[in-house]
Computed example of a mutant assay.
Amino acid sequence: MKISVIGCGRWGSFIAWYLNRTGHEVMLYGRQDSSRMKQFQQTRENGIIRLDNEIELVTDMKQALLSEVIVISIPSQGLRALAAEINQLAPENKTFVLCMKGLEAETGKRLTEIVEETLLIPHETAVWLGPGHVQEFYAGTPNCMVIDSKSEAVKAKLVDSFSSDLIRFYYGQDLIGNEIGAAAKNVIGIAAGMLDGLGLSSLKGALMSRGTREIARLIKAMGGNELSAYGLCHLGDYEATVFSKFSHNRMFGEKFVKGEPYTQLAEGAFAVKGILLLAEKSYCALPICSAVYDVVYEKQEAKTIINKLFSRSIKNEF
């Protein structure tokens, strides 16, 4: 299968490496002025992985859109602009796979919703979600992930052609739940980092339990299956997000409460805005997500917010 990967960052470059490893003909697209693409063109390395010579490096979007399958891996807040750019080039009957986790901060829309309302040409859309870090995959550590789509045929095609001994794919059954769960796990990751920064790491067990329950309520309120919160998109991704040294969201939270700068992308900082918009629309209480928002955007003291969480009215666990 001929596949293009749009986005030459950490995750996009890994996807190109992985799909080439599984026997596909792969192009990796990056903008001409991208420092990451220039580094790949010069050395075929980015400090984490080395791309095989079979992977074609391209800076022409028209060329990248010639492939049958287009995997998109960019920061979530840039998806609408990218979809509009692709729409103008009008490549019909392509399958777009969103290998990214987030919500549009200003609207709360899921990423597939953005693509569907922006990309007006005939196409199919899928999402590729779940746990794992580039460094661990590249070192040969396997993991499980999920692919979901409105189209059963698209799911079957992608799962069958993408699966390998390194990634075991499952068929997703709840696009709403999988997208919301994947975006929300980054918010929980920020909360975990805040606990680490405050020396309260022992609270992570409670955070995972109550965080999953909170997101399950939101998924159900939005019309999805609440059990999705307990799957690979959310709870299954907690180890990689809540504990890992490679987690940008966890590190962002830790640095934030310590008052230290952090320059890497933490998608949860954008997703929390969108999640609270969804919570408002669905009349769903999300105390942990609200706490993260209050610390990051309302500049409230993290310790004060934790005390407020502990002073909430007592209730049944389930």
Results as ranks from 00 to 15, higher is better:
3 I>R: 05
4 S>N: 08
5 V>S: 05
8 C>A: 10
10 R>C: 10
12 G>W: 04
18 Y>A: 08
24 H>F: 06
27 M>A: 05
28 L>E: 07
28 L>D: 00
30 G>H: 09
31 R>K: 12
32 Q>H: 01
39 Q>L: 12
40 F>Y: 14
43 T>L: 10
45 E>R: 15
47 G>Q: 08
48 I>H: 10
51 L>I: 08
51 L>N: 00
54 E>P: 01
54 E>M: 10
58 V>H: 02
60 D>S: 13
60 D>L: 10
60 D>F: 00
60 D>A: 12
68 E>Y: 07
69 V>A: 02
69 V>S: 00
75 P>E: 10
78 G>N: 14
83 A>D: 01
88 Q>S: 10
90 A>E: 14
91 P>T: 11
93 N>C: 03
93 N>Y: 14
95 T>I: 15
99 C>M: 15
99 C>R: 02
103 L>G: 09
105 A>Q: 13
107 T>S: 14
108 G>T: 08
108 G>P: 01
114 I>P: 09
120 L>E: 14
122 P>M: 03
122 P>I: 03
126 A>N: 06
129 L>M: 15
135 Q>V: 06
136 E>I: 02
137 F>R: 03
139 A>R: 13
143 N>V: 01
147 I>K: 05
149 S>I: 03
149 S>L: 01
150 K>F: 14
159 V>P: 04
159 V>I: 13
160 D>I: 00
160 D>A: 12
163 S>F: 02
163 S>E: 06
164 S>L: 00
164 S>V: 07
166 L>P: 08
167 I>P: 11
167 I>C: 11
168 R>S: 13
171 Y>H: 15
171 Y>Q: 05
171 Y>T: 10
172 G>N: 08
173 Q>D: 13
174 D>N: 14
174 D>W: 07
181 G>C: 07
183 A>L: 09
183 A>C: 11
183 A>E: 02
186 N>C: 10
186 N>M: 09
187 V>E: 11
189 G>R: 09
189 G>C: 00
196 D>G: 05
198 L>K: 01
201 S>A: 15
203 L>H: 13
207 L>D: 06
208 M>D: 06
210 R>N: 06
210 R>K: 14
214 E>T: 09
215 I>F: 04
220 K>A: 15
224 G>T: 10
225 N>V: 01
226 E>A: 12
227 L>M: 14
231 G>Q: 02
232 L>T: 00
235 L>R: 15
238 Y>V: 05
239 E>Q: 08
240 A>W: 00
240 A>S: 15
244 S>Q: 10
246 F>L: 12
248 H>M: 05
249 N>P: 11
250 R>N: 04
250 R>F: 09
251 M>P: 00
252 F>T: 06
252 F>Q: 04
253 G>L: 03
255 K>S: 03
255 K>V: 01
256 F>I: 04
257 V>Y: 07
259 G>F: 07
263 T>R: 13
278 L>D: 01
281 K>R: 15
281 K>M: 05
281 K>C: 00
283 Y>E: 13
287 P>E: 06
292 V>G: 03
294 D>K: 15
301 E>D: 15
302 A>H: 02
305 I>A: 00
305 I>C: 08
308 K>P: 00
309 L>K: 11
310 F>H: 06
312 R>P: 02
317 E>W: 07
